[in-house]
């Protein structure tokens, strides 16, 4: 390794690791003495009912978003690859739009359009918030699934399945789905990472999700805040390494791995 490469990598390592290590040391400072070492912050966090409650809210929301995304996007991408390849660039273009409409802009529009909507939709995280997150997750889900479908022979699989007498739904569930499982899982883990970290929309639409809890803790107790910060980092890390693990099992290839929960 050349000297300059070594220097760059060491500097990068410092910039990226120091905040994490420092956050850990900060989180084990004792409230009374401001010195090392006490795990009181962690104890307080795990005994905080809101921690588990909001974690659950966000996790259930993530599952809901993943299910809606899969139900909506898998058949669409399948059909587009099979019958209407002309639509593929159209959907690909649609998948770029969420980059132009950032969460802060999206939530302004959503709150305006759906202000008068029934309360089961407007007042519940499983309504308007899930709908927004599906849109946030859609590009990642689409790019992942699109790559998955490109890697298999959709036409042959479909013909084989139908000449054996399978219906459309049966072909989709029993034949196509197992073949794009890795792509669907990869998209799902990205969606998980997005939903578990998204703050902007939840904050402006006033829902109490896990990231809102982190913000709330930060206003009262910096030590607990850094403890929850590490929990949050751990969740992102788990989601992303599951994603990479799937990607590696699939045999390399470019796995989309940018989600973004700023």
């Amino acid at each position: 390794m050349s000297a300059s490469a070594f220097v760059w990598l060491v500097l990068a390592g410092l910039y990226f690791l120091v905040p994490l290590v420092a956050t850990f040391f900060f989180s084990i400072r004792s409230v009374q003495t401001n010195k090392c070492c006490s795990f009181a912050a962690y104890t307080a966090v795990v005994h905080n009912g809101d921690f588990w409650h909001t974690l659950r809210v966000s996790f259930v929301l993530a599952l809901e978003v993943i299910v809606i995304c899969l139900v909506l996007i898998v058949p669409t991408v399948y059909w587009v690859h099979l019958k209407v390849p002309k639509l593929r660039p159209v959907i690909g273009f649609l998948a770029l739009i969420p980059f132009v409409v950032p969460p802060i802009v999206m939530v302004v529009g959503l709150l305006k359009v759906y202000r008068g909507a029934p309360s089961w939709f407007y007042d519940r995280p499983s309504g308007i918030l899930a709908a927004a997150y599906v849109i946030l997750a859609f590009p990642y889900m689409f790019f992942s699934l699109d790559a998955g479908f490109r890697a298999i022979d959709v036409h042959t699989l479909t013909e084989a399945s139908q000449s054996l007498g399978a219906s459309w739904p049966r072909t989709l569930v029993k034949v196509i789905l197992p073949n794009i499982r890795a792509a669907a899982l990869a998209g799902s883990f990205l969606a998980l990472a997005i939903v578990m970290g998204e703050f902007t929309i939840a904050n402006l639409a006033q829902f109490h999700t896990f990231p809102i809890f982190i913000q709330f803790v930060g206003e009262s107790d910096p030590y607990q805040a850094s403890a929850v910060t590490l929990v949050s980092f751990g969740i992102t890390w788990l989601a992303m390494s599951s994603l990479l693990f799937i990607g590696r099992k699939r045999g390399g290839g470019a796995t989309t791995q940018i989600a973004g929960a700023r």
């Binding site: 994490l20 998204e198 805040a225 910060t229």
Partner: peptide
């Protein structure tokens, strides 16, 4: 992959703690 997705409030807190 992790750091590009690790943003928002926790990132701010990590730097405040550092």
């Amino acid at each position: 992959g992790v750091a590009a997705n690790f943003g928002g409030i926790p990132l701010a807190f990590a730097f405040i703690a550092t």
